[in-house]
Design a binder for these strands. Structure first.
Length: 328
DNA sequence: AGGCGACGCAGACTTCTTAT
DNA sequence: ATAAGAAGTCTGCGTCGCCT
C-alpha cells in the first residue's frame, strides 16, 4: 500500500506526525536534561486521525472492528490496521478473546498439569503439542471470523469476498529507541486471516509459562497468552520498514504549547476591563452577612498608627501625599 | 562479584461499544 | 441501567548483559 500512495498525501501525514514528535520534550518523563536522548513520541489516537485526514480514509475503528481505517486509491481498496510501537519492541497484541476464557480453561488446566511433570521446556512442548494445536485452531477460527465480519461491515466501500482489489495491511509507525538518532520508521505488513491449513506449533514461551505458546501459519508468528486471552503477533519490526523519517525536536516545546493555549483560550480584552468584572460580580448573588468581627491594631502605646504592618507599603508610595490630601 | 540499567514478558488497567 | 467484551495502553517484575 505505502509505495502506491501519492507522495503529497504521505508528506502531509509525515508533517503531522513529525509535528507531534517534535514536541517530545513535553511528554518524555525521564529525559529532562538532554532531550536529544529521548525517543520520539507518537500518540496512537493522533496517529489514527492524522492518517485518516491525510489519506481521506474512512474511520473504521467503531464497534470493535479489526480494522482502523479504509481507503481507496487508483481503484485499489485498502483495509488498514494502524499501530504504533517501538522499533525494538517485541510482539504486539492483535486480538483478545476474553469471552472464551472459561470455555478454554479445561484445556489450559490440562496443559498446566502436563507441564508439572515435565523436566524441561522441550518435554513441556512435546507433551502439549496436541493441546496447543487444538487451541491454535480455535483461536485462528475466531480471529478469522472477526476479520470476515469486519470486512463485511466496512463502511468506506463495498468489499466483495472475492474482490482482488481489496488489500488488508497493518500500517505501523515505529519510533527509534532512546539514545538512538531520533527517527520514525514506517512499517507495513500483511493483515490477513490466519491460514488454518498451514498451522504449526512452535512451543511454549518458557518452561515456567506452559500456557503461553507460539504458533505460526507460515506468514506470521503468533503468540497466545492464556491469562488474559490475548493473541499477539510478531511484526518482524526491522524487516517491514518501508520508509524512514528523521525527527527534529523543537527548541522550545514549552513555548509552543503556550502559543496553543493563547490561540484556543485567547486573553479576552473584556477581562481586562474593570466594568466587565463589576458586571460579573453583579451577577453573583449577594451574600448575607451573619456575623462580623473587628479588632484594633494598635501599637504598644495603644495608638493606632497611620501605617501598620498591613499597609506600611503605602507609606513608601509617592502618591500617598495626593491620596491623603484628597480624602481629607 | 556485585550493582545498575535496559529490555521484554505477563497481566492489569482504561476506554469505548454492544448486549442484556 | 448494567455488565461484559474488545482493543489499546501502562506497569511491575524478572532476566540479562555491561561496567566497575
Amino acid at each position: 500500500m505505502w509505495e502506491d500512495l501519492p507522495s503529497s498525501k504521505k508528506n502531509e501525514y509525515k508533517r503531522l506526525i513529525l509535528a507531534f514528535a517534535s514536541l517530545t520534550e513535553m511528554f518524555a518523563q525521564k529525559v529532562t536534561d538532554n532531550v536529544e536522548e529521548a525517543a520520539p513520541i507518537i500518540n496512537s489516537k493522533f496517529q489514527e486521525t492524522a492518517f485518516q485526514r491525510a489519506f481521506n480514509a474512512y474511520a473504521e475503528d467503531i464497534g470493535n472492528t479489526s480494522y482502523d481505517a479504509s481507503l481507496e486509491h487508483n481503484g485499489e481498496k485498502y483495509l488498514v490496521g494502524i499501530k504504533t510501537f517501538g522499533i525494538s519492541s517485541g510482539d504486539q497484541k492483535v486480538a483478545q478473546f476474553k469471552a472464551k476464557h472459561d470455555e478454554w480453561s479445561d484445556i489450559i488446566d490440562e496443559i498446566k498439569r502436563h507441564a508439572n511433570d515435565a523436566e524441561d521446556k522441550a518435554t513441556v512442548d512435546s507433551l502439549n503439542e496436541v493441546l496447543y494445536m487444538k487451541l491454535a485452531r480455535r483461536i485462528a477460527k475466531i480471529r478469522n471470523a472477526r476479520i470476515d465480519s469486519s470486512r463485511a461491515n466496512i463502511k468506506g466501500f463495498k468489499a466483495g469476498e472475492d474482490d482482488t482489489h481489496v488489500h488488508s495491511v497493518y500500517h505501523v509507525l515505529m519510533p527509534s529507541s532512546r539514545n538512538e538518532d531520533a527517527k520514525i520508521y514506517v512499517g507495513e505488513t500483511s493483515y490477513d486471516k490466519i491460514n488454518l491449513e498451514n498451522l504449526s506449533i512452535l512451543g511454549c514461551t518458557g518452561k515456567k509459562n506452559p500456557t503461553n505458546f507460539f504458533f505460526t501459519d507460515g506468514k506470521h508468528v503468533y503468540k497466545y497468552t492464556s491469562a488474559d486471552s490475548q493473541l499477539h503477533m510478531n511484526f518482524d519490526n526491522r524487516n517491514i520498514v518501508c520508509d524512514e523519517w528523521n525527527v527534529k525536536y523543537a527548541d522550545d516545546a514549552h513555548a509552543i504549547f503556550g502559543k496553543i493555549a493563547d490561540m484556543v483560550y485567547p486573553k479576552s480584552p473584556d477581562l481586562d476591563d474593570n466594568s466587565n468584572i463589576l458586571e460579573i460580580e453583579d451577577d453573583v448573588e449577594e451574600l448575607e452577612v451573619e456575623d462580623t468581627y473587628c479588632w484594633t491594631i494598635w501599637n504598644k502605646n495603644q495608638e493606632t498608627e497611620l501605617f501598620s504592618g498591613f499597609n506600611s507599603f503605602l507609606a513608601q508610595d509617592p502618591r500617598w501625599e495626593k491620596i491623603s490630601v484628597k480624602s481629607e
